[in-house]
Design a binder for these strands. Structure first.
Lengths: 166, 166
DNA sequence: CAACAGTATCTGTTCCGTCAGATATTCCCT
DNA sequence: AGGGAATATCTGACGGAACAGATACTGTTG
């Protein structure tokens, strides 16, 4: 079971697709280490993971009485099972609070605590300084806005296109 | 510890940055389920994860005698420890083979087996039909090329900017 | 209203990648 | 050549998310 030639594994036409796959894969790997690119300071400063920070943002902008577990999970593209445990940890850290949904006794509503809001506000302030500078820096100036717009579009599409997460 | 107002959590200036954070986060979540967007058919058809498919692509295009574990890990942004186990599984599945690096007795070289090359060729063929159509579809026609270019730039930058992975 | 399908959340299990440490080897400096 | 730092890979322990099943509740339908 040996192999000689590996060149010509694909047509030039397909090579561009592979490039996209590889680029996205690398970014996914890098995103797992997003702390180095974007949120390392947050983790150091506030002792919360980047994922927690994202959930704070999501819940924070919902405001009002809070968001259901499912809605958060849907928004962040996570299973509700995973969300249960994540919110467990965040609740233990005093960042969010669960309350019973008054309109549906199956449901819970998650909202920021005062501490959680404080953290997200200060973390965001820290974030702002880093995100464009470090993450987007390699891109040519004029491409950044459009790239961010594409990212927004794709992420919404991804969120909505995926089958309902358990 | 109750909280009343949640509006005005941040300035309008910062809101755009948060948008980027959230978009990227969602994409990361979605990327974990990249199978639905890009590679679901591959997993069904060939019984290999999308990550394995990516590694097959990476090793395949290296060609020749093969790639070191570290080089693959670096290219895909993964720790070498994780790579060890991934290659274990891929070797067990008959997709790749390890050989001792003749120039460095610490190292191993990973190369595709005939079966691995067959899988990656056929999977790529399947992929081509799906990737642009499903993943990039939500983007306006004229933005796609530039978006892919941005993705390429950023992914290379991310790979190179990260501290050496253990 | 009883039956039943659908939904929200939680929990046990499993998978998989990271982290830190161990071992073997190479490289560099004296 | 000898000693130590750096490097390649592997391994044990761990964390966290997915998956599937369980439980509780809702809404619909006969």
């Amino acid at each position: 079971m040996d192999d000689g030639e590996v060149a010509g594994i694909e047509s030039a036409q397909d090579a561009a697709n592979d490039e996209l796959v590889l680029a996205f894969g690398r970014l996914q790997g890098a995103a797992g280490r997003l702390e180095y690119l974007l949120g390392g300071a947050i983790e150091e400063e506030f002792g919360i993971s980047h994922l927690m920070y994202e959930v704070l943002l999501i819940v924070g902008r919902a405001g009002g009485a809070g968001m259901s577990m499912r809605a958060i999970a849907q928004e962040r593209v996570l299973t509700t099972g995973g969300m249960t445990r994540l919110v467990d940890r965040m609740e233990a850290a005093g960042l969010v609070a669960r309350t019973d949904d008054p309109t549906d006794r199956r449901g819970k509503l998650v909202r920021l605590t005062a501490h959680g809001r404080d953290v997200v506000v200060r973390a965001s302030r820290l974030h702002v300084r880093n995100i464009r500078r470090h993450f987007l820096a390699p891109l040519p100036e004029e491409a950044r806005e459009q790239f961010m717009e594409c990212l927004r579009i794709l992420s919404h599409a991804a969120r909505d296109a995926l089958p309902r997460l358990r």
